[in-house]
Design a protein around this nucleic acid. Structure first.
Lengths: 214, 214
DNA sequence: CCACAATATGACAACTGATTCACCTTTCTG
DNA sequence: CAGAAAGGTGAATCAGTTGTCATATTGTGG
């Protein structure tokens, strides 16, 4: 049972490209890997699928990567950046945190439909290199919890365990993205967001809460 | 690109056991498969790992299963039943739906910590046979949405899109189970449930909602 | 206690797919 | 333009798997 003997967090592969051409080739390989992993799945995708997609020979792959795993790790890192950037861009003009939540979810649903591969690749990382998968969500969760805490201090959100809330919210987005962004579009993204927004603002309980303990 | 050529929903393998002994062996293999998939992951686990764990020879595996995939499908089906049964048992005496939600989440967190493999196996099914994974959650979501609709008609929950809510709630449980049940226990299950219960009852918005549009 | 049907065995053939490596091509530099 | 360094090639190698099959064991009804 040899878990994962080698590997540093920052291994850039055997040959970091020294010229623009090399960098382009490396990028092509990475893009092809994303497509191959996304459509075939990590394990079903072979190096041949990647190199064929990139239009290079097998050997070229090993000029830039030590193996399949490293490729996946790099993709996961990229995706983290891209998703964050996308969300940040769309949440920008929000009035308050609840508004930001709605916009964020909307943006996420859109991102998922436009980048269906991202989803699969990220999820599959869970079984290839659990650590990097954890890092991804832990980082996301930290940032999220901080945003909520700020909102609490601004009086936009009631106090509560923001870390737990963050994970709950990430889970919601994850499942809604999968179901309504990836699998079926039987409910429009805006309707999904509306339902969630309502739930997040008011909760599910019916009574107008005035009886706060006498 | 040959996706999935054969396979019926109800293929019981080449030899359904005819005696009690055979049934026992089959069950042992299934249990060993769960452990192997859970600890090593589906693709890393070989038939040898399974048969070794079950204490039988390689060939015996093929007396009861056509291959690895069939084993996984069967496990996923089992897990669906077991999780449901567990939740049903623990939600039983609930006062209302919101109470049931809290109890359900609590039970789920407990189940995850006690059956860490279930989690991995189920999630990995997503990449081995996406259809069965979808079925699992679609069935769960349907049942969930119905429960919510009933609660609405009983006046325990405000009206809204119950299907979307169901997926949101499943996502929450999923992520909270992963983070607080599987990865780290830095927050007690009861505290997790409390935070979520609060959010589900009252939402995140601070104002006591009396201003329902004049 | 015998015969036969279900079970179980494990060596092995056939195959898959990752990685290596000796060699070729392109590009840049002095 | 010569030479070197970076980039690129793909056939060959190598490790590990799956699934088969001829054979052995178990145990049960007659």
């Amino acid at each position: 049972m040899s878990s994962t003997p080698q590997r540093k967090a920052t291994d850039a592969g055997p040959g970091t490209p020294k010229t623009a051409r090399g960098a382009r080739t490396r990028a092509r390989i990475l893009k092809a890997a994303e497509e191959a992993f996304g459509t075939l799945g990590y394990y079903r995708a072979g190096i041949t699928d990647i190199t064929r997609g990139a239009g290079v020979a097998q050997g070229t792959f090993y000029c830039y990567f030590t193996g399949k795993e490293e490729t996946l790790r790099e993709l996961v890192r990229d995706m983290g950046h891209k998703v964050r950037a996308h969300l940040a861009r769309h949440v920008d003009g929000a009035q308050d945190r609840l508004d930001a939540e709605a916009r964020g979810l909307r943006a996420f649903l859109g991102y998922v439909t436009e980048n269906p591969w991202m989803y699969r690749v990220l999820q599959e990382a869970q079984f290839v290199d659990e650590e990097i998968y954890q890092e991804y969500y832990e980082a996301f969760g930290d940032a999220y919890a901080t945003l909520l805490a700020d909102a609490v201090s601004r009086g936009e959100v009631r106090p509560g365990d923001n870390r737990v809330r963050a994970w709950a919210l990430m889970g919601m987005s994850h499942f809604l993205g999968m179901r309504y962004g990836l699998w079926q579009s039987d409910v429009s993204p805006d309707d999904v967001v509306a339902a969630v927004d309502d739930m997040l603002r008011l909760g599910l309980a019916p009574q107008p809460r005035s009886d706060d303990k006498p």
